[in-house]
Design a protein around this nucleic acid. Structure first.
Lengths: 194, 194
DNA sequence: CCAAATTCCAACTCGCTGGTTGGAGTTTGG
DNA sequence: CCAAACTCCAACCAGCGAGTTGGAATTTGG
């Protein structure tokens, strides 16, 4: 039987996504990741170097997935409201993503994070697209593009990053469901770009 | 010399704020809290019951501080933009608050959190104030009040909850400082309530 | 076909950390 | 004034968990 090291690696990575999203870099247990992957934990040290590097690898992978799933210009420039809605949909389907992002933020503070340079380019591209749309006149230009991007990301993500707050704020609302939350988000962003 | 148990308690609580904000409930070290407070760690177990309960006590205390520092109607209803600015200022001066909030959110998930009922009332009051201002016509009424409150909180807090993202998004900006970030925030909220 | 290199695993180490304990000092109530 | 109750502390402990190791199985390259 041939070795399939790529598969073993991927098995670990996929198991680690859930573990890290749920418990964070501190709370995650190396043994649990290995068990869930059905692999010996020593593999983690051979392939990734350690728990922290595995966390970095997980983050990089998930970042790429998001970038692929909600592409740069899928209506972004033309209609940021709908783009925000798509980001919301992605978060709904993959709730671990925002969690990973926040674990990273809480842990790293002002330190550089994994793949920071590449990720910065990614955002710069989006800002450029928004700038172009403003010049073309398909988008209101009252809000500077970087700030607009910031707003979209923050508004789409906050529901998931502090669910307890979202719950309390919406406690009085007539009905509070993912659907109405998405509508609220789109409404907010549309208003910003009116 | 008389015992001053209240002071000892407070010493621990204050030391714990920093420790929990920086490292989270998992990463926080009981010994470090005790050392910083200049108190024996056994006191934590007598006064609070354990690490987790201490975390709850810290959260409750800081929540009250924020509520006191950025009062309900200090210009909120009349000018949500400026209110958002004040929240931003508070976060700048007390960066541990947002961090605590997010650690709570990441840990609790969909479970009830400490003092949830009281906190919900707190937000309901704010929503009511916004509703009144909309009825009075001092505030645009395109955005439902709860959603507006959500937006203010999310936009003011995101800078601090994922500093790595904020850094990357703003990487291309002419200058990126607390001052310009605050201005961006106010601009965004003003646009929402125009 | 054999030897070097690589993958895999069970078992181990060992420092760390939350929590405990026993007792000494201090206050309080009667 | 004395005994019960409470505050405080140094030392202790048990188990958990990241990382290691030694060697067996498997592959590869010559």
């Amino acid at each position: 039987m041939a070795w399939d090291t790529a598969k073993t690696r991927q098995l670990l990575l996929d198991a680690a996504v859930g573990e890290f999203a749920e418990h964070g870099p501190q709370g995650a247990r190396v043994d649990r990741v290995a068990a869930k992957a059905g692999v010996n934990k020593e593999r983690i040290y051979q392939y990734f170097g350690g728990k922290q590097q595995l966390f970095g690898a997980v983050l990089t992978q998930e970042l790429e997935k998001l970038a692929a799933a909600v592409p740069l210009d899928a209506g972004l420039a033309a209609d940021p409201g709908e783009y925000a809605g798509r980001v919301f949909d992605y978060h709904s389907a993959h709730p671990h993503f925002v969690r990973l992002l926040h674990w990273e933020g809480l842990q790293a503070g002002d330190d550089q994070v994994a793949a920071e340079a590449q990720r910065a380019v990614h955002y710069a591209d989006k800002v450029a697209a928004l700038t172009a749309a403003q010049h073309a006149g398909t988008l209101g230009d009252e809000i500077p593009p970087a700030e607009l991007l910031y707003a979209v990301i923050a508004l789409a993500g906050w529901w998931f990053s502090t669910p307890q707050l979202a719950r309390m704020i919406m406690a009085g609302a007539a009905d509070d469901s993912p659907r109405t939350r998405r509508e609220a988000l789109v409404r907010l962003v549309r208003k910003l770009t009116a």
